[in-house]
């Protein structure tokens, strides 16, 4: 049986993998949002990295969607769009209280399918794709309360608009939003046992201040995790509500379809497996169970992670 301290350590790698998701937020074009939303939500939890420790992950995130939630909450079709994000994510403990976090999507591909007449077989509208670096996020996280019973942390993030917000033939493909944003977030987590299994629960809330006409957002979420031998299983429920204090979305053409004033409630199951003490793999899918102005198809991710102790 593990000691309590060991349990926390075991949890940390999986919790931190969630932070990766948080970064995704920043990417939100609609495509991204879809992607991001599910994965992003879990970001970080209440734990921070001990000094000199770290967590690093190379992952691929993708979504292909031929329908979306409209502004009324209904589901409408759209020409199929896809986004593929290859990213590096890293957390490093500068001290036992301060952890630095980097999310760097170094290769993002956004594409739109061609449209072909079902009657004549002729191409009606050609397909399109762009590739670039994506929007990047830097975060500093502080462990406000770090006890064995409960942990409580706050973080500040800045989104760097490195992506292309107006790409493709019609300017509607994006690998970024073109806006800087700043997000403040609070996380509370607690570990406990379920029978003989280690488990944890987390909640968070965040305020995302966006610029360039994008509406600010309130984000919130709940996560439950379970450690079974070398497997980590967790489910996150994430929500985003828009303050709708930005421009109307029609102004966003070419900068992020549906990306402005988007709202959603998403569920993200994730499984991770530790191959060794330091190396592991993870996979997740995320889907919005309700939403407005986001894609209505699940996003998927898979990655390899490394923990530095």
């Amino acid at each position: 049986m593990y000691s309590f301290t060991v349990n926390l350590s075991e949890f940390r790698w999986e919790l931190e993998s969630l932070c990766l998701k948080m970064n995704l937020k920043k990417l939100h074009t609609i495509l991204f949002i879809l992607l991001v939303v599910p994965l992003t939500l879990a970001a970080g939890d209440g734990w921070v990295q001990p000094r000199g420790s770290g967590y690093f992950k190379l992952s691929q995130y993708w979504v292909i969607a031929d329908q979306h939630y409209t502004n009324t909450g209904g589901i409408d079709p759209n020409a199929t769009r896809g986004t593929y994000i290859t990213s590096l994510y890293g957390e490093y403990g500068f001290t036992d209280r301060f952890t630095g976090v980097l999310y760097f999507p170094f290769f993002v591909r956004a594409l739109q399918y061609e449209q072909v007449s079902g009657t004549t077989g002729e191409v009606i509208l050609p397909g399109d794709a762009i590739n670039s670096v994506g929007d990047t996020q830097l975060t500093i996280k502080y462990g406000i309360v770090q006890t064995d019973k409960i942990v409580f942390s706050g973080s500040l993030s800045v989104g760097l608009p490195f992506g292309n917000n107006r790409g493709g033939q019609d300017g509607s493909l994006q690998t970024g939003t073109g806006e800087w944003n700043q997000m403040a977030r609070l996380d509370v987590s607690k570990s406990f046992r379920v029978g003989t299994l280690d488990s944890f629960a987390s909640i968070y809330s965040a305020f995302n201040n966006r610029t360039n006409g994008f509406s600010d957002e309130f984000r919130y979420g709940v996560k439950l995790g379970l450690l079974v031998d070398k497997f980590s299983l967790q489910v996150t429920v994430d929500g985003v509500r828009s303050f709708k204090n930005g421009d109307a979305n029609f102004n966003s053409e070419g900068t992020g379809l549906y990306s402005n004033n988007a709202e959603y409630l998403a569920i993200t199951p994730e499984v991770a497996y530790k191959i060794t003490d330091q190396w592991g793999i993870s996979a997740a899918f995320a889907g919005a169970v309700s939403g407005k102005l986001i894609f209505a198809r699940p996003a998927y991710s898979a990655g390899v992670f490394f923990t530095l102790n």
Partner: peptide, 21 residues
């Protein structure tokens, strides 16, 4: 390898439009 695998799959596909009148 992971990167290459997924991006190989990210080709532009085709939507068929039912445009008969």
């Amino acid at each position: 390898m992971l990167w290459g695998l997924f991006n190989l799959c990210s080709c532009i596909g085709t939507d068929i439009v039912d445009d008969f009148v």
